[in-house]
């Protein structure tokens, strides 16, 4: 069992976990992920490591409660335990001094972009972070990002903070100001990574994306996470998770991500019903004792 040292919501439905994992903390590098199971009948889900501390022996992950497993995970509190945790998995991010590095992130992708931005800065790059979200409340890790990069720019779909628009609009602004990125890293929801890759392909800026595929074992045994990159099938868990965004078949990956949409909805519904029952039972109990 793996102890949760600290759990706290950092945005609506988005929770940050500090988990005791000395071996993983010692080994992990930017871009790598873990696989966890919440309970003994749980599924295995991959989550990118946002931060770690080798001396104190912990890792940090940021989770948005979208489906059954992530929603269940987000009910866990400080002091609770995870059923299983394994890692670090995947190849570390290739970092070099490109010159100007722009890290574009959406949603919880910002937490995953953090270690890459920090490593990029340490390697001597000028690093600009572009953070995008639907609205002000969903912008996460802005302060932490500001600590490690040269400049942070924000965009929201509704204009509640930062530039009204998408991260691609902010990139265009940068270019219009005469800033020419030498390298782009895009991490976030698939449509966002696809849009960025489309934009940068036209203007010829190398772009790396971190693919979030469905996985089971995460060590190259099952092939659930396959994607097409440059016309070839790759296994995201051992060949990635980072790839040349200009070569990725986003349409195929998008439909593969929806492979279990129906089952996931069913599972999520079951979970919510169970939670509701539990809450009602607790309410009753409280009433009875008062």
């Amino acid at each position: 069992m793996y102890k949760i040292i600290k759990a706290e919501f950092i945005a609506p439905n988005v929770k940050s976990f500090i988990i005791e994992a000395p071996h993983i903390a010692k080994k992990r590098q930017a871009g790598q992920f873990i696989i966890l199971r919440v309970h003994e009948k749980g599924e295995r889900i991959p989550i990118t490591i946002a931060d770690s501390n080798a001396e104190e022996g912990w890792i940090n992950i940021i989770v948005q409660g979208l489906g059954k497993t992530s929603a269940h995970l987000n009910t866990l509190e400080t002091g609770d335990h995870l059923q299983d945790l394994v890692g670090p998995l995947g190849l570390p991010t290739h970092i070099e001094n490109w010159g100007t590095l722009v890290c574009m992130s959406g949603g919880v992708g910002t937490a995953e972009a953090l270690p890459i931005a920090a490593a990029g800065k340490a390697a001597g790059n000028r690093v600009i972070s572009i953070i995008g979200a639907r609205n002000k409340d969903l912008i996460i890790a802005e302060d932490r990002m500001a600590e490690v990069v040269d400049e942070v720019r924000i965009s929201t779909d509704d204009g509640s903070t930062g530039r009204h628009g998408l991260v691609t609009d902010v990139l265009q602004d940068l270019m219009d100001e005469g800033i020419k990125p030498d390298m782009i890293v895009a991490i976030g929801p698939l449509p966002m990574m696809a849009a960025v890759s489309n934009q940068t392909k036209e203007i010829g800026i190398p772009t790396m994306v971190s693919l979030n595929a469905i996985m089971v074992d995460g060590t190259g045994m099952c092939g659930a996470c396959r994607a097409t990159v440059g016309g070839k099938t790759v296994f995201v868990c051992v060949d990635g998770p980072e790839f040349d965004g200009h070569q990725v078949d986003f349409k195929e990956l998008g439909s593969r991500q929806k492979m279990y949409k129906k089952q996931e909805e069913e599972s999520h519904k079951c979970f919510l019903e169970r939670q509701m029952k539990k809450m009602k039972a607790e309410e009753k109990k409280a009433e009875a004792t008062s």
Partner: peptide, 28 residues
């Protein structure tokens, strides 16, 4: 790579290790 095309390893792992045949009682 279409949906519904599995490797035997994945199909059997989902069923055996992850008990997918007991979904939604089991999560996979």
């Amino acid at each position: 790579n279409l949906n519904g095309v599995y490797s035997a390893n994945e199909f059997l792992t989902r069923s055996n290790l992850m008990r997918g045949y007991d979904f939604p009682e089991w999560d996979t």
